[in-house]
Structures are given as C-alpha cells and as structure tokens.
Amino acid sequence: MSALIELLGDYTLRTVALGSALLGITSGVLGSFAVLRRQGLLGDVLSHAALPGVCLAFLLTGTRTPAVLLAGAAVSCWLGAAALFRVVEETRVSEDSVMGIVLSVFFGFGIVLLTFISKRGDAAQAGLNTYLFGQAATLVWENVVTMAALGLLAIAAVVLWYKEFKLLAFDPEFATSLGYNTRRLGLLLTSVTVVAIVIGLQTVGVVLMAAMLVGPAVAARQWTSRLSRMLVVAALVGALSGLSGALISMSQPRLPTGPMIILSLTALVVVSLLLAPERGLLWERRHRRGRRRDRGPEASGDGA
C-alpha cells in the first residue's frame, strides 16, 4: 500500500495514469455508439489506418513531436473511414469485407513506411514504432494536456449532438425521414471517433486501440439499459481500466502499459459478462429455472 502511495507521488506515474484515464473516458463514450451501431470493427479499421499517417507526418516534417504525428494519424484515419464508406456505397462488396481490406491496406502501407524509416538509421526515427503497441512511459505533461483538450472536444460533440447520434444509432432510416442527412451525421460521428482514437495512439497504440473502444461499451451495456447511463458507465470502465493498467504496469518493472490497460479492461468485461444483474451469465443461470416465462414477452404475442 505504501508503495502505491509512493507511486502516486511520482511525476511519470501521475502523467501516465491521468493520460490513460482520459483515453478510457473518451473511447468509452465514443465506443458505445460504435458498438450500438454494430460497427465494433470500425475502431479496429480506423486505428490501424492511423499508422501510415504517423509515418508520413514524420517523413514530411522530420519531427517526432506527438502533436504533429497525431495530426497525421487523424488525417489518415479519416481517409480510411472515407475510403471504407465510399467503397461500401459504390460496390456490392459487403461491409465487413471492405473493412478487412481497408485495415490491411492502410496498416500494410504503414508497416512499409515504418520499415523504410527505420532502415534510414538516423537517430530521429527512434521510437516511432512505439505507436504500434503504445508506450505510455513516453507521455509527458504536455501530451496529457493535449489529450484532455481533444477528449473534451469529443465529449462536447457528443453532448451537443446527443439526440441526433442516438437517433442515428437506433434507426438511421427514420432519421433520414425526419430530414436529417444521415451520411453527414454518420461522418460527423466517425470524425469524433477518430479524435477518440488519436487520443489513445501514444498510450495503447494502433494495434490494441480497438479494444478500448469496444470493451467499455460491452461491459457498460451489461449494467444498464439506458443509453445515457451506458455512456457514463462506459466512461467509468474505460477510466478504471486506464488507471489500473497504468498503476499495475508501473508498480512492476518491465510490464508494458498499453497491454496492461487492455488486460485490466478485459478483466472488467469478463466480470460484467458474468455478474451483471439480469444480463450476466451467472445471474441468468441462477434465475433460469421458473423465471423463464417472464423473460420473453416477445414470445407471448401481443399482451395488450
């Protein structure tokens, strides 16, 4: 315990823990919409699509300043999303296939660039590959401030367009019939999701970022059946995973932060899947006998 308190006084730890928590909050909120829109894989595609942006930003500017690299990441994420939507719209190829293609093409191109950069062998390139799995220890206070600002922007967008995003997730066709341009609305929501992804790239990296979007949402859905509460719970689950992952990794030598955050998150998801009232597996098993009839009004026809 005293070791923990000692840790909390540590500058690096405070920075990393706060950054990880911020990342968890934003990705929890935006991930909830992605999951409810059955776009759980979209986060995976977008985060992988960030890699060529990071590399190109470095090649063009020669700097490793996170703000510059993350701006590059955002642009390439967004291009990945645009490519995805365009191909789905214009061709008869199914959405999941297009997702697979966009992910591989962008990530593959990113790896090519990364290899090219590392073969150049100049000192400036060192550390670029931390964007693959993230390296929270490289976070400095400035980065955390940037993350907080971006996070605030993303959350503000969700608050501002909450009822529109909710309608879009629930029934896009009906939203169109109300006069909304659902294509633009969807693009807006995706753009905000890109912001959430960019926040996490330094900490958990492009490969594991998708889990930060999907995990908190899946856990939160277990505990509540109201969207507004689900967003709050997802933010809490995200923050808790970020915080505990950071604490665990820093309390032991040689434990990577990003993967530890994901493992903490996984633990929370498993607990939620097992224990949540009404929806948890254990709860269901206990109440299955004798309760089966009231659980499925769908099966009983029109009760009115």
Partner: peptide, 11 residues
C-alpha cells in the same frame, strides 16, 4: 423487421 436493433438500450 428492418427498423431497429431489438437490443438497443432505449425505453
């Protein structure tokens, strides 16, 4: 049938 996701968290 095509209108919505039945598990959506909405009252």
């Amino acid at each position: 049938a095509v209108a919505f996701e039945a598990r959506f968290p909405a009252s």
